[in-house]
Every structure is written in structure tokens, then in C-alpha cells.
């Protein structure tokens, strides 16, 4: 009787089982991971979530007079917060506060005080100016400073902006100035004449996405 040694198979059973199990676990794991995508709901751009756009009227944001159109006389060197108000698909008025980043800051300075880099073309007579009120650092709503008069200050991490000079950053962590919104006067009312001049928070470092949003808005409107 000859004793013969069995040839080793190309792979051992142990190895085969390990590889098979590993593959199954990997494929299964990845497929389960894909369900995480369900956590991220689809975004629908409704009228109340659109950024301020041409033709919008600026209305008070303060709770007691929310929705009332702002007149030039309401404004001063103290900050006044405003929402843009536009129309929805049916032509009804809609305050665009579905996106809280749409909140605006309005100022009115005596002639000559507003200087570059403020875009004076986009102000009313070089007196009334509108900015995004959302800090470019982490998105808090910016107020008047109680420490440095005439400056704006963010309550979250003390970012500071100068509203007379295009809201440039004068202190703290914000990376960019507040975005300026072009406005004009129409009788008593303040009317938006176009999109923000620079990408507002949270698009301030992502020009491409801001342009995408603008395109989406334009498509939705036509």
C-alpha cells in the first residue's frame, strides 16, 4: 500500500472561508452604509427659502412688527433687522424666513460716512445700506456692538465688522466681510435689486455653490 501525500490545494479551507467571510462582511457593510444616505432628506427650494432677490420688499423682522414694510424713516445708525418679502408661485406675499440665513441688517448713515469698500452704487443715495446679518464665522446673527460704538459685533465669538466700510472684519475670527445686498428706493419702500454682491454665509467660501443656488432660483422662477 502506498502512502501518498495529498497535494496541497491552491488555497487552504481556512483561507477560503476567511476571504469569503471578509468579502461578505465588506459588501454587507458598505450596502448598509448606503442607507445612511436616507438620513439626509431631499432639499426643496420653496419660495420662503430662496435668498433675497430682485423685486423683494424689505420688511421688519422684529417680532412686534414682523412683516411690516420698512421705510427709510425707520432706519438710523442703529441696526434694523429685515426679512426680504417676495411672492410665491401663486403670487401671494411670502416672507423668506424659511432660511434663517436670509436675515438682513439695515443702516442709514449721514451722507458721506459710507465709504469704500462699500459698493455705493448698491446703496440708496450713499446713505442706506443692507448687509447679510449672518456672521461669516459660524452663522450667528450680528448686532450693534456695545463695546465699540459704531461697529457691529457678533455675540458668538466676538467677531467685529465695520458697517460703514462694507462690513469689513475689524476683529475676531470671521474670515470674510458680511455680504452686501443691492437695494433701491421705490416710493416709501426699500426694494432689492439683485442677489447679494458676494456669496453670503454659508456660501462665503464656496462661490460655485452660491452660483448653483442662483441658477436654481432663476430656473424655479421661470
Amino acid at each position: 500500500m502506498t502512502r501518498y501525500k495529498r497535494q496541497d490545494p491552491e488555497i487552504t479551507r481556512r483561507k477560503f472561508i476567511n476571504v469569503a467571510m471578509g468579502t461578505t462582511a465588506a459588501v454587507g457593510g458598505v450596502s448598509l452604509l448606503s442607507t445612511l444616505g436616507a438620513a439626509n432628506p431631499v432639499f426643496r427650494l420653496t419660495a420662503d427659502k430662496m435668498p433675497p432677490l430682485e423685486g423683494d420688499i424689505l420688511v421688519h423682522a422684529e417680532a412686534s412688527k414682523e412683516g411690516r414694510p420698512i421705510t427709510i424713516d425707520d432706519l438710523s445708525t442703529q441696526l434694523v433687522r429685515a426679512w426680504p418679502m417676495g411672492k410665491d408661485e401663486n403670487g401671494a406675499d411670502v416672507i423668506r424666513k424659511g432660511d434663517p440665513n436670509n436675515i438682513l441688517a439695515l443702516y442709514r448713515f449721514p451722507k458721506g460716512q459710507l465709504v469704500a469698500p462699500t459698493n455705493l452704487e448698491a446703496t440708496i443715495d450713499g446713505e442706506v445700506v443692507a448687509y447679510s446679518d449672518i456672521c461669516t464665522h459660524a452663522g450667528c446673527s450680528v448686532s450693534d456692538s456695545d463695546i465699540n460704538a459704531g461697529q457691529m459685533r457678533c455675540p458668538c465669538h466676538s467677531g467685529e465688522y465695520d458697517p460703514k466700510r462694507g462690513a469689513v472684519v475689524t476683529g475676531g475670527p470671521p474670515p470674510k466681510p458680511l455680504a452686501q445686498l443691492p437695494i433701491r428706493r421705490d416710493g416709501d419702500r426699500l426694494v432689492v435689486t439683485g442677489f447679494f454682491l458676494t456669496p453670503p454665509y454659508p456660501y462665503h467660501n464656496n462661490e460655485a455653490e452660491w452660483n448653483n443656488l442662483k441658477r436654481e432660483v432663476e430656473e424655479a422662477l421661470t
Binding site: E62, K97, P100, I103, C140, S141, S143, P173
Partner: peptide, 28 residues
């Protein structure tokens, strides 16, 4: 509301992260 809260702060055990955020200069 959109009216911010003055000096909003996290609880004491996260205050240090908040402090770092407050003193780090802005850049990107």
C-alpha cells in the same frame, strides 16, 4: 428667533472648545 442671545455659552465642560474658537484668528 433670529435675534441673537448675548454671550451664549456651552456648558463648562465644553467651554474650552468655545475658548479656542474665540481666540483663534480667522483664516481659511
Amino acid at each position: 428667533t433670529t435675534t441673537p442671545i448675548e454671550n451664549i455659552k456651552p456648558d463648562w465642560y465644553l467651554l474650552w472648545v468655545f475658548g479656542v474658537l474665540a481666540i483663534i484668528p480667522g483664516f481659511e
